[in-house]
């Protein structure tokens, strides 16, 4: 079941129609207060949250939801300001949709969010497979179309972080924190260079990427792998 927290009634109606057409059950809330209650009582699988709610700052609401539950949050932002999206992601949102969004985009984001929600609580898969690329976390082995790929420890760590969250956008800061911890020696520059090296080793052309997609101003998104659901 998908919960829509959005103050504009027309946008709620549009989302309901689109989501019901995709076969989802939908529930609506028009502000942060009723949204919180709905989360408590209905335990939705995914939350679609508008950042411009009348009664509370969207960023605060994300942080407070994250204090007590892990339900995936997809942020709806009417503003095209990348910093706002980055802030929402770092507050605990899982993904974002910029208005106007296409129904295809919406369904792709929901699919990724549901898959991540399903995996929460399980011990995690030791082996990931996306478009001919396999990453074996336990054996620390990476193969591309059957051939071994040699990565440095940092590159392996970066790739496994991306692939664990595949289909989801990760901000620069989230990646740096995950891979290097609090004290990243060369920050963004280091992240760019290592990503570039991984791309070279995977034969991934940044002009038409197969695995690692750049979201300018925000971060990276690893290919979701269309085959899975």
């Amino acid at each position: 079941m998908i919960l829509i927290i959005e103050d504009e009634v027309q946008v709620r109606r549009l989302l309901r129609r689109s989501l019901e057409a995709l076969g989802h059950a939908v529930s609506e809330a028009e502000d942060a207060r009723s949204g919180r209650q709905a989360i408590l009582h209905l335990r939705p699988d995914v939350i679609l949250l508008d950042l411009g709610l009348p009664d509370e700052d969207g960023q605060d609401l994300i942080r407070s939801i994250r204090e007590w539950c892990e339900i995936p949050i997809i942020v709806l932002s009417a503003r095209d300001q990348e910093t706002e999206k980055v802030q929402a992601l770092e507050s605990g949102a899982d993904d974002y949709l910029t208005k106007p969004f296409s129904p295809i985009e919406l369904s792709a984001r929901i699919k990724v969010a549901l898959r991540h929600a399903a995996r929460t609580g399980t011990t995690g898969e030791p082996v990931y497979e996306v478009e001919g690329l396999t990453v074996d976390l336990a054996a620390r082995r990476v193969t591309l179309d059957g051939a071994d790929v040699h990565l440095t420890p940092i590159e392996f760590k970066l790739l496994s972080t991306m692939i664990r969250h595949r289909g989801k956008v990760l901000t620069h800061n989230q990646l740096i924190r995950d891979v290097w911890g609090r004290h990243a020696p060369d920050g963004n520059q280091g992240l760019r260079i290592h990503t570039q090296h991984i791309r070279e080793k995977l034969g991934d052309d940044p002009l038409s990427p197969r695995f690692i997609f750049t979201e300018p101003g925000i971060g990276y998104r690893f290919a979701a792998g269309g085959g899975e659901a």
């Binding site: 504009e8 027309q10 549009l14 989302l15 689109s18 009417a78 106007p100 969004f101």
Partner: peptide, 18 residues
């Protein structure tokens, strides 16, 4: 302005898509 212009456009384009 951004919000007021984009919200109806989002609804319009979504409606046309459905």
């Amino acid at each position: 302005l951004s919000h007021d212009l984009r919200t109806p456009l989002t609804v319009l384009s979504g409606t046309v898509a459905s």
